[in-house]
Design a protein around this nucleic acid. Structure first.
Lengths: 221, 221
DNA sequence: CAAATTATCAAGCAACCTATTGAATAGCAA
DNA sequence: TTGCTATTCAATAGGTTGCTTGATAATTTG
């Protein structure tokens, strides 16, 4: 017979997963890992926290089965476990944007003024007809770990110095980590200030990847 | 310029949503609300906890925007905010089943032995040809709040006494709250013990509802 | 083997969360 | 109004979590 104790044990176990998402620092790590696998040290620097603390949080994520860990010489590289985990994180983030006014407010504050955006379908159409150039303004390691077909890597920091290399007669579309990442916003503002036509892509690399189906999956079930 | 403080504020805000899912008691409430809206008192009884505690958890869920609250005379009825929230809860639950061995173990313990299951497509086909009778073994209030088209309500408690009312020449398919709910398992065991042919539907009402598209949505955007 | 680098462990303190209790409030009905 | 029920509030005690610090372990490099 199904008992209260067994039921409690079941929800206790599921709550382990919930708790993994209950810390802002851990969420930031998940968000970074959604772009590319990284070592503890890289994550610590990218999220402005001590290595010890980062390691601790990563272990918590690992205990919840959200990340994998592989040793690489003297360092350890963490990665999101799979696309189901990525989808869960994106869903949590999206729900929080919609349902929590404070997230919306904090996002506006962080992103700065709104800039013109373009959707997936329009981008694909305009790319096909050669009207736009698509730039990935994330750090180059993230570009190398995966990017939108046809994009060129122009990390935000190098944008100004590489302006001349971008065709002046085409609109520039910039994308980055996702709708809550400031890189694309800043890139567009910077491009506009330089007199270019520019918009940001509404979504980032993880959303694009998930939407275009789990990367050419092997034919077997 | 995007600052570390602004970024922290953003993740702090998103973590509010994560924290809402970090308590087993709250998850049980969400799971109950996924079936039907309920009053505080009903939820307290269904989850075996004090009214005060239940109220407190419901307020936490409300603060995270996950539930709505309407006063009905002397009581207050809570409901899941929308289908996006429901989908998030199901996603969290599914990820935890897949990635946490302990959840899988606790589920096996709670559900008892595995029983034969049937998928959505096969069920639809067999219903169309009149080979099966579909029974909803959840409490009748949940059935009334929404159920699969063509199902009849036979709450688990009444199953034995209403056996005679079920056609003996057709296979019985039972469904309940979802894959982690024990009702359908128990119903099938009980039916088999009584000599009937019986299987459980792999999914429950919330999954079915989400999969068959958000309930005939109004034509306007 | 020693030094350097990277990651993890262990302990401690502060902040936060949870369940309990008993009191307070809101609506309803006599 | 009074009594009744359902819900919420307030205070508290116990437990858990998070960040810091300093020490320890694993691996590569000289």
């Amino acid at each position: 017979m199904a008992s209260r104790n067994d039921k409690d044990a079941l929800f206790d176990a599921i709550a382990v997963m919930g708790k993994a998402f209950a810390s802002p620092r851990r969420l930031e790590l998940v968000d970074l890992l959604a772009q590319a696998p990284r070592t503890v040290d890289e994550l610590a620097r990218a999220s402005d926290q001590s290595a010890a603390n980062t390691s601790q949080h990563l272990q918590a994520l690992h205990a919840a089965g959200l990340v994998t860990r592989t040793r690489e010489g003297t360092s350890v590289r963490y990665a999101l476990a799979d696309d189901q985990v990525l989808a869960l994180w994106l869903a949590l983030r999206d729900v929080s944007v919609v349902r929590l006014a404070e997230v919306e407010r904090a996002a506006r504050e962080y992103l700065g003024g709104e800039v013109d955006a373009i959707g997936r379908d329009e981008l694909l159409a305009r790319m096909r007809s050669g009207e736009v150039v698509l730039v990935d303004v994330r750090p180059s390691e993230e570009f190398e770990a995966g990017h939108i077909d046809g994009a060129r890597s122009v990390p935000l920091e190098e944008l100004e110095s590489r302006l001349a290399g971008l065709p002046a007669d085409r609109e520039v579309v910039a994308y980055c980590r996702g709708p809550l990442c400031a890189y694309a916003h800043e890139a567009v503002r910077s491009l506009r200030a330089a007199g270019r036509e520019a918009r940001r892509l509404e979504e980032g690399w993880p959303e694009w990847r998930l939407a275009n189906g789990p990367r050419t999956r092997p034919r077997a079930a």
